[in-house]
Amino acid sequence: MPASLTIQLVNQSTSENVYAYITGLAIQHGMARVFLKADGTSLYFPGPPPAGKILQPLTENCAIPLGPPGNTVTATIPQMAGGRIWFSVDDKLTFLRNPGGPGGGAALVEPSVLNPSDPNADVDFAFCEFTLNNDQLFANISYVDFVPRLPIALTLQTHGGAVQHVSGMPPDGLDKPQTVLRINTQSAHGTLKGTVPAASPNQLVIGGEAFARPTTADILGCNSGPFATGGGGGASAVRNAIIPRLAAAFQRGCVAAADVSEHPSHPETFYRAGGPANHYARIVHECNLDGKGYAFAYDDVQPDGGEDQSGKVNAGDPRVLVVAVGGGGAPVRITSTFTFGNTSMIKLAEVA
């Protein structure tokens, strides 16, 4: 295995401003923290910040500009463990130094999608991971921490002529295109068409109500961001009618389905393979014997005349409610009734 390796960084985005950062632990330098500088070849070993200081910026420019769409930039990496190739679009990333890093150098504070106060919170970024040592190069696209909006693909050519390729996601990542979105409010407001204004691509306007792009927490909770309901001067009546149906479409992964002309839609459009959805809810429904169960807020949303998904029973003239425990699926029906003293009793039979 060579002491270094050539990496070609290709800008397949539509942006003129894409930057790469290459970080890791330098195996040939005592596992010290290392960056490649902006020229793609020189090494930068960030030292610790001054005594008593934390969260200090890097002292070298390590943003490798990739140039216009279609351009390729060549970088050369040394043997590295725990390596990452980071990419950001339209804005540069901020890496910060703390004391206590390997080899007496800096401990690195990397960009995080989980910390809303992180200086990179509003930057579109992604990374892939690699290790280059005496035995091999190992690289992969990682979705363990998060799924980025900026897709990454890998191609490895060996000295023997073999080629390995990982395609990654399409250009829109998880943002699947939606040609038509209509919400049946199932109320006096009727069916409303949704559009994404050209001037506000992160907004969906339905019936005059603007809905901002939801976060994952907004979607899973159904009660924050664009899904916050209210009355008494809060959300309007039409917005309150839209929210449950729009939230359910996100949860079930059918909000962007090209073959769904109106929401709420039918169960065959829910939780399709390979699509973004609330997979906790999907698994809950799959594991119930009849596929029914209240797995998220608004799981009782269904089309007019559609089959209930929430696992509810209701009647205006109830006679008896049978609640069975133990996993038998309550496979019973009432076969007859009789009176014991002043109490009406029932006989139950299993349903085949």
Rank of each mutant, 00 (worst) to 15 (best):
P2G: 13
L5K: 11
I7G: 07
V10P: 05
T14K: 10
T14M: 09
V18K: 04
V18C: 08
A20V: 05
A20E: 07
Y21S: 07
Y21H: 08
I22C: 02
G24I: 05
Q28S: 13
G30C: 01
G30E: 02
L36R: 03
A38N: 10
T41E: 12
L43H: 04
Y44I: 04
Y44N: 06
F45W: 08
P46D: 08
K53Q: 15
Q56G: 09
T59H: 05
N61K: 04
C62N: 07
C62Q: 07
I64V: 04
P68Q: 07
T76G: 05
I77T: 09
P78M: 02
P78T: 05
G82T: 04
I85W: 00
I85R: 06
S88Q: 07
S88C: 06
S88T: 04
D90Y: 13
D91C: 08
G101D: 02
G103C: 04
G105D: 05
G105C: 04
A106K: 04
E110Q: 06
P111K: 01
S112D: 15
V113Q: 12
N115T: 11
P116G: 05
D122G: 14
D124A: 15
C128N: 13
F130L: 12
T131C: 06
N134W: 11
Q136T: 14
Q136H: 12
F138I: 15
A139F: 06
N140I: 14
I141E: 03
S142C: 13
V144P: 09
D145W: 03
D145A: 09
F146C: 05
L150Y: 09
L150S: 02
A153M: 02
L156V: 13
T158A: 12
A162R: 14
V163A: 09
P171Y: 12
V180C: 05
I183V: 12
N184T: 08
T185P: 04
Q186C: 05
Q186H: 05
A188Q: 14
G190N: 04
L192H: 02
G194M: 02
S200Y: 15
L204K: 10
G208K: 06
R213D: 01
A217I: 08
D218Y: 03
D218A: 03
L220M: 12
C222Y: 00
A228T: 00
G230A: 00
G232M: 01
G233C: 04
S236I: 00
A237P: 03
R239Q: 02
I243E: 00
L246N: 00
L246Q: 02
A247Y: 00
A248S: 12
F250R: 09
R252I: 01
G253K: 08
V255H: 10
V255E: 03
A256P: 07
V260W: 11
E262W: 08
E262M: 04
S265M: 01
S265G: 01
P267F: 08
P267R: 11
P267L: 05
T269I: 03
G274M: 03
G275L: 15
A281T: 04
A281I: 06
R282Y: 02
C287L: 15
C287Q: 15
C287R: 14
D290G: 14
G291E: 02
K292S: 10
D299W: 02
Q302K: 15
G311H: 06
V313G: 13
A315I: 13
A315L: 11
G316I: 07
G316R: 11
V325G: 10
V325D: 09
G326S: 07
G329W: 01
V332E: 10
V332D: 08
T335Q: 11
G341A: 06
I346K: 12
K347T: 09
E350R: 15
